[in-house]
Each structure stands twice: as structure tokens, then as C-alpha cells.
Computed example of a mutant assay.
Amino acid sequence: MEKNNKTSISRRSFLKTAAAAGAALTVQPAINRIKAANVALNGENVSSVKKDGMPHRTLGTGRAAFEVSALGFGVMGMTYNRSRHPDKKQCIRLLHEAVERGVTLFDTAIIYGPLTNEQLAGEALAEFRGRINVTTKFGHEVIDGKATGRQDSRPATIRHYCEESLRRLRLDVLPMFYQHRADPSVPAEEVAQTIADLMKEGKVQHWGMCEVSAETIRRAHAVCPLTAIQSEYHLMHRLVEENGVLGVCRELGIGFVPYSPINRGFLGGGINEYTLFDPTNDNRQTLPRFQPEAIRANTRIVNVLQQFGRTRGMTSAQVALGWLLQKAPWIVPIPGTTKLSHLEENLRTLDFNLTPQEWLELETAVAAIPVVGERYNAEQQRQVGG
């Protein structure tokens, strides 16, 4: 438990206040949909269009343009890498609640499980085809339902994974197909051409890449225009601001989808040095940044977010999401959760209207605190930035 939680608004305290309303929200989701305000963004609004009370944003430009809700939903943690999770019926119920609240972008991947996350998304969301979009990812090699630890983006493999994802997701066409990690043995141009062919065949509508360099983005985009780049991005990891990735997205009109926007739950304030992660289903126990000593040191950053949010009626998770949303109108974070109260909390981020000066104040305060621990272990780090 946070030492400063008596003087700050934490994710746990939000959960308590939201719990009483949770049942009513489940019964009458249409009446209680989020009423989103326009957030000032360097003279622009969060979105130029609203549907069902939810602001929408556009990832990509031209024929690569893809309109989605301003906040998406990361499905991964419902079955993979996030310790205990609710049973399937509860997960399906929560995904339906997200749809009712206006979320139209849901993110999964072949490697999550492997396969089980796509199966869950397919079972839960197939009935909303035409209303929402489920994006998925290829690249990590999976053989007989098990991950090998290798990358495989050969054209024949991409085609095979595409067909399998269509079947598991119960779709006729994939709204967006990301390359999850670069394959060092397959040039980006060859991957892009394979996706272009799948688009011509009507099996893929848009495509993206994850954790790749600015140079790789340029090469791939020249062959087949990219709709979005997905990389880790939050107040404790801002590498894409420095390595040219955000810059090239801005230049080429490519959208950006930050994964782990609350730093795997850490910025929500509910994790401390005594938190135990499930050794059979939680990768955080292997990450340097989630070791007890690092958590203890990095809690100072959470305290800054809590103090900033306290005078504005925001939780630290809402501060973290709000900071990302105001960075650019073509950024769409995809926080995940297994709790209705956290879904409600995340979506209510869209209600707040802060000035650029306030966000600068937050950035300055956070930048003064060094982040302890790398985000990935050595093996996982070798797979990013290709």
C-alpha cells in the first residue's frame, strides 16, 4: 500500500467509490455512457467527431485512415501475463460493457496465450462486427499452440497466421494486422508487400508495426502505407520521443497506439514492493522495473501523479492517460483491465480539460525523478527497435 495514500487519490480509492455505481452501470449502460469533453490540445481538439458520446480519432491518413474511439481496450491481460483474471463469462461481460460505452478499438495478438486471447476476443466481440474493430498481431512464431521464442514473418507464415486469426476472431477481414516484432531475416519491404497483397485479396484492411525503428517505418511505409505504429509509451518510458519514431509518424501521417499506457498497472498506484505476481502467468516478475527495489524507488513518480491529480479530481491512472491523449490527436492509448471500475475510470479520463501549461508542470515534476530499472530483460530487449 502506498505510504502517501491518505493524502492522494489512488486507483484503489477510485475503485471503492465506483463500486456502488458498478451494478447500475451494468444494468443501464446506454443511459450512463461516458460524456466526453473536448480536451485542449495545442489549439486542436481531441477529436473532430463524436459517436455515442465518445470522442473518435483517426489513425493514419489517406487510404490508410482508420477511425476509432479515442481510447481503445487492450484485451491481453484477460488471459495472459497479468496474474489472476476473471472467468470467461466475466471477461465477455466486461468487453460488452466497453462496447456499450463507445469503445470501438480492441487489441489482441496471436502470441497472447498463445491463441487463447484471440479466441476470447472472437467469442466476445464477433456479434459487434461492423460496430467495432478487433486488431491483432503476427510475428512471434507459434507452433502447435506454443511459442518458440523466435520471429517468423516470412510471406507464407504471414498468410497462414492471417487465415488462422480470421478463424479465431470470427471475421471475414482483419481491420488491422500488426507485425508484432521485426523478423531480422525478412526485410520490412517484403513484409509490407505481403500485407499489400492480403489487402488486395480483401483479407486485411489496415496494417501496422510494433516496436520498430524510424528507418524501418519509412521503408515499410514506402511499399504499403502504414496506419499505426504500436510501441510502449508513458510517463516512465518516452523513448519514442527521442528515437525519431513519433517524429516520423507525424511526418508521414501515421497513427500511434501506445501499449501499456499505465506502465503495466504501475502508474495506477495499486502496485508496491510487496506485490506478488503469479509466477505462471505474469511477465512483470521478470522485468527489472518490477523488482522490489525498483518499485520502491519508482513509487515517487506515482506520488507525483497522485498529487497532481488530487487538486483536479483525477486518479493517477487518469493523469497518465490524459498526458498521452494531449500529446497528439493521432495517438490512441489501449489500456487493458479486468474490472468494470477500472474501465469506467479509464474512460472518464476523457471528461477532463487541462491546459498545456498544466501538462508541462507534470512533465517537469516527473522528469526530475530518475526511473530505476530497465523496462525489459535482455532477451525481450533484443526483440525491439528493429
Results as ranks from 00 to 15, higher is better:
134 V>G: 03
148 T>P: 00
146 K>E: 15
121 A>F: 03
145 G>Y: 10
130 G>H: 01
125 L>V: 01
119 Q>F: 00
127 E>F: 04
138 F>Q: 09
133 N>K: 13
140 H>D: 14
132 I>N: 09
134 V>P: 01
151 Q>P: 15
129 R>P: 00
139 G>D: 08
153 S>G: 13
124 A>W: 06
130 G>Y: 03
127 E>W: 03
134 V>R: 08
144 D>Q: 10
140 H>I: 15
146 K>C: 08
149 G>Y: 02
138 F>A: 13
126 A>T: 06
142 V>N: 09
152 D>K: 11
148 T>Q: 00
137 K>G: 05
136 T>P: 02
129 R>S: 05
151 Q>G: 10
152 D>T: 07
119 Q>R: 11
124 A>M: 08
128 F>N: 01
125 L>G: 01
127 E>S: 09
145 G>V: 12
146 K>I: 06
153 S>P: 10
126 A>H: 07
141 E>K: 15
140 H>Y: 07
136 T>H: 03
126 A>W: 05
127 E>R: 11
120 L>M: 04
139 G>K: 08
121 A>P: 01
120 L>Y: 05
144 D>A: 11
143 I>G: 12
120 L>F: 03
152 D>W: 02
146 K>V: 14
138 F>L: 09
146 K>R: 11
131 R>V: 12
138 F>S: 11
132 I>C: 07
139 G>F: 09
143 I>R: 12
139 G>P: 08
138 F>H: 14
124 A>T: 14
141 E>Y: 07
138 F>M: 13
133 N>D: 10
132 I>S: 07
147 A>H: 07
137 K>M: 07
139 G>V: 13
137 K>C: 07
126 A>N: 03
131 R>T: 14
134 V>H: 03
146 K>G: 13
131 R>A: 09
149 G>A: 06
138 F>G: 08
138 F>C: 15
139 G>H: 12
121 A>G: 01
130 G>L: 02
129 R>F: 01
143 I>D: 10
137 K>L: 09
136 T>W: 05
122 G>W: 12
142 V>R: 10
144 D>F: 00
121 A>W: 04
125 L>D: 01
138 F>R: 10
150 R>S: 13
152 D>Q: 05
153 S>D: 14
132 I>E: 04
146 K>A: 11
123 E>W: 02
123 E>V: 03
127 E>V: 14
